[in-house]
């Protein structure tokens, strides 16, 4: 792998709501190398999207990044002024959102939305920006790009809209592309096309990719490293190829067993219970109320994120004693 590009260090992002303080991201750490495709995995409410928003400094109110560091090539983004962050958003880090129906502005043409981003980051004329917009649409394999530039989002299909959203995320030629569940709101056949596109773009453009998803299938298909989040904390970090055969955290194992498989007869497992309330999260290990290996230690102490083996980290008191591999093979 290449050089470390982004490091998130003990990030805390809370939402101060009327019902109480929601500890959406509570001490998340991980790193992303140059050109690396990384998966950020977890159920809804695990803090995946908020982590991405915190990196960019665009956490919506009433959310607030309280502490931690977000280092981009060694520079702490959390210490930067908003005006400096603005120059970096879209330019160093691009984002594709979940639902292209809502992430594209309905009242502006595709061309307008692309060229606005292009002209924000590059000092070029309107004509040149238009050419660049056409180039971006070609890049995301949209046919008749000149026509598409003059169309409004509602004139395009769902898959086409998401391609436009990807083109917009690429408009500033970023080094990191964050894709926040980019296929969840698309038809299944379109999903495969969009994933294929993201995969090849990541290689073509030599970008690092942060794929936010709850789908282990997408993780297997797209990424080389995976960060598993649970209730605002990191459960496990692992190379993708290892995690499927030998998960180290009981949550990861449970998550993997919740993926339907054609080659195994075993019935599909669901994880008992729900993701905890993040206003008053469980003490100790946040997964303990749902974990079948839970002991008193899990209730009393927060497990540290330990370095185990090479390139692997896990946050579980009992990882050594568990033999989750055999469980997966069954």
């Amino acid at each position: 792998m290449g050089q470390e590009l982004l490091r998130v260090d003990d990030l805390h992002t809370f939402f101060f709501t009327e019902a109480g303080v929601v500890k959406a991201v509570d001490g998340v750490s991980f790193s992303l190398d140059e050109k690396e495709p990384l998966g950020l995995v977890g159920e809804s409410g695990s803090g995946k999207s908020v982590t991405a928003q915190s990196i960019l400094g665009i956490v919506p109110r009433p959310g607030k990044v309280l502490s931690g560091r977000v280092l981009l090539k060694g520079e702490d983004l959390l210490k930067k002024k908003d005006s400096d962050m603005r120059k970096l958003r879209g330019r160093k880090i691009g984002v594709v959102f979940q639902d292209p129906n809502s992430s594209l502005n309905p009242l502006f043409t595709v061309g307008k939305q692309l060229t606005d981003v292009v002209r924000t980051h590059f000092d070029i004329s309107k004509g040149q920006a238009f050419e660049k917009g056409v180039g971006l649409l070609k890049l995301v394999r949209i046919p008749e790009p000149e026509t598409r530039m003059t169309q409004y989002p509602h004139e395009l299909s769902g898959g086409m809209k998401q391609r436009v959203a990807i083109a917009r995320a690429l408009a500033g030629e970023p080094e990191i592309l964050i894709a926040d569940e980019p296929t969840t709101n698309l038809d299944v056949t379109i999903q495969a096309q969009v994933l294929e596109l993201l995969k090849s773009l990541q290689r073509e453009l030599n970008m690092a990719l942060m794929m936010i998803t709850h789908d282990m299938g997408i993780v297997a298909e797209m990424t080389e490293k995976v960060v598993v989040l649970y209730a605002g904390r990191v459960a496990e970090v692992s190379p993708t190829r290892e995690i499927f055969s030998s998960p180290k955290h009981p949550y990861t194992a449970a998550l993997l067993k919740a993926v339907p498989r054609i080659d195994k007869k075993a019935s599909l497992m669901s994880i008992p219970g729900n993701i905890p309330n993040l206003i008053e999260p469980p003490a100790g290990c946040r997964f303990h109320p749902r974990c079948k290996y839970m002991t008193q230690l899990c209730v009393d102490q927060i497990p540290p994120l330990e370095d185990i083996l090479e390139h692997r980290k896990v946050s579980c008191h009992h990882w050594k004693e568990l033999s989750l591999e055999s469980e997966m093979a069954a």
């Binding site: 928003q53 958003r89 330019r91 959102f97 639902d99 594209l104 502005n105 009242l107 502006f108 606005d116």
Partner: peptide
Amino acid sequence: QDYVLAARASGLKESTITFRYALKN
């Protein structure tokens, strides 16, 4: 709306977002 968040994530100026992207809607 997401398109406001997306515009912000693209690095557009806050004034552009408020007075053009959001106001028109």
